[in-house]
Design a protein around this nucleic acid. Sequence first.
DNA 1: ACGGTTGATGTATAATTATGCAGACTATGA
DNA 2: TCATAGTCTGCATAATTATACATCAACCGT
Lengths: 159, 159
Amino acid sequence: MEALAQPKTKRQRAILSLIAARPIHSQDELALLLEQQGYEVTQATVSRDIKELGLLKVALKGGNGGTFKYVEPTVGPAFASRLHRVVSEVVIQARSSLNQIVLRTHPGTAMMLAAAIDNAGWPEVLGTIGGDDTVLVICEKPETTPMIKQRFEDMRGEQ
Amino acid sequence: MEALAQPKTKRQRAILSLIAARPIHSQDELALLLEQQGYEVTQATVSRDIKELGLLKVALKGGNGGTFKYVEPTVGPAFASRLHRVVSEVVIQARSSLNQIVLRTHPGTAMMLAAAIDNAGWPEVLGTIGGDDTVLVICEKPETTPMIKQRFEDMRGEQ
DNA sequence: ACGGTTGATGTATAATTATGCAGACTATGA
DNA sequence: TCATAGTCTGCATAATTATACATCAACCGT
C-alpha cells in the first residue's frame, strides 16, 4: 500500500511551492492554481493536503487584500522545543574552544538552561555545568563543537 | 477615540492566555471560555480579535480531537508575550492572600521572572520581589488579586 | 482469480469563520 | 448643544473549510 504514491506527494510539493511564491487566500484559489499545473483536484483534497502538511494559516494585519495566507510551519513561528524557547530567552552569548562551549546568560538563569540542555538529550553533548550566569557545555568531539555552538546561535537569532 | 479602551484590550489579553493554556478548536469555544471569565462577546468579535492579534491557526497532526488550534505568533517578542513565555517556562505554583501573590518557580529563575513581571508594566501590580525560587507579587488591591493570580495560572497551561 | 483491506479522492453538506450593515457609544469641534 | 467622525459590537449571512459517505484502484494472502 506504499508503492508509487507519487501523485499525492508531488502535488503536496507543488502546494509548498505555491504558498511560498505568493499569498494564497483560499483553498479554492490553491485548487485553481494546482489545476493550471496539471493537478486536477477539488477543494476537499486541498483541505486534506493542508492538514497533512501541517500548514499554518496566518492572519494578515493589513486589512486590504486577503485576510490570511498559508505558510510552512518552519517559516512561521515556532513551536520550538522547550530548549529552543529557553535559549532564545536567556542566552546572551555563545563561545567555544576545543570541545567546550560557554554560554553566557542573564543572571540566575544558567541552571535552568543547563537543565534544559541536558533534557534535550543531544548525543553530541556529554554534559553541562550551570552556575549563575554561565553554562559550560562539554561536547563529545572538538570537530563538531562549532556546529553545536552554531546551533545555539541559530536558536537565539531568529526571534 | 483612544481613551479607556480597556475592555477590548483586556479581552484580547485574556484570549492570549486562553490559547496558551490549552488547545482551542474554534472561535465559538473561545467565546464560551471568555464568557466564563466575564467577557460576553460573540464569535464575530472573537474573529476580529484573532485577526487583530495576528494569531495563527495551526493544523494538528493527530487526527483525533480537533483539527487545529490557535497560537500566538512568536515573532516580535512583545513584552506581554515575553512574560507569558517566561511564566509558562518557570512557574510551578501560584497562591495568593490579601493583595499578595506568591509564585513558586524552578530554582534560580525567580529573579528573571520578577524582572519580566516588572517589565510587563501591569497597572494592577505595585511591585515584585524575587528570591531564588519564589517571587512575591504585591498587587494594588485585594479585590483584584485573585484575578491577577488567575492570569498567571492561565499562562501556565500545558505547553 | 477472489474476497478483504487500505488509501486516495469526489460529492454533498455540515461546521466554522469572515464581513456588510446598523446601532450604541465616545470624543471633538463649531 | 448639536452635528460629525470614529470605534466597537451584534446580527444575519456570505464565504470558506472540514468531513461523512461512497467509489475506485491497488495490493495481499489464500
